[in-house]
Amino acid sequence: MTPETRTELIEDLVSGVDRYNPSNVSILEDYLYHQIRSEEYDCLANLAILKLYQFNPELYNPDVVINILLKALTACPLPDFNLCISLLDERTANNNLDEPDPLPTLLPILRGLHSLLYRCRFPAFWTAYRSEELETLRDNYTVECVGFENAVREVAIRAVKAAFTQISTERLGSYLELSGDDLQAYIQKLGWTLDASSSVISIPPNPDNQIEATVVQESISLPQLTKVISHAALKA
C-alpha cells in the first residue's frame, strides 16, 4: 500500500493526524498532479484528499476527484476505485463553483468503465472509451493523465498473464487495442514469444499460470501434541 516514491512529507500526512488539517489539502493535490505527470500512483494519499473533501465540502474540487478516479481505475482489479467512491458523500448543489460540476455526469461513465475493466471485458472497454460520448473525458482528463492507456493495457496484461499459457495475437490485440507492429513491439517488450506460423503468443510460466492438482495434507508438528504427550508422560 506504500509506494516507494512516497516522500517523507506525504508519509507524515498520510499516517499522522495532520491528514485532517484542511490547509494540507494543496500539498496532497500537488502530489496527485505529480502522480498524473510521472506515472506514479499512491492510493492512500489520494484517499486522504477525498477524506478532506468529505469533512470539508468547501474544499471540493471536481477535477481532482476525477483524476483520482482515473488513477484508481488503472489499479484494477484492486478495489481502489470502489474505495474512492465510498468516500464521495452525498453533496448538495455546488453553488460556489464557477462552472457546472462535471462529476455528476462523468461519475456514471467512470463507473461503467470500471465495471468493464473489472469484468475483464477489455475489447468492450476500448469501444466505450473511444466512443463519442466519452469525448469530454478524453479531451479534458485522460489526455493529461500520462500513460493512461498504457496503464489500462497493463491491467489487461496482468489478467492475461494469470489465465493463459498461450494466446492468439488477434485476441491479445483486441484486449490491448493494438495491432501490427505496435503489438509486435509490445509483445517483445514484455519478453513474450510469438510463433510466426500459428500467430500464437507464448506466455512465460508464472505461479498463476502453472497449475497442478494438489492434495492438501494436514501437517501436525510436535509442539501441537505437547499437551497429549505431557499428560501421558506425567501419568506414567
Partner: peptide, 18 residues
C-alpha cells in the same frame, strides 16, 4: 478449482483435501 487457458483449450485441476 484452478485452470489455465492454452490458446483455446482450458486445462483444469482441482485441489482436494486429504
Amino acid at each position: 478449482l484452478n485452470f489455465v487457458i492454452a490458446d483455446n483449450m482450458v486445462h483444469i485441476t482441482e485441489s482436494t483435501v486429504g
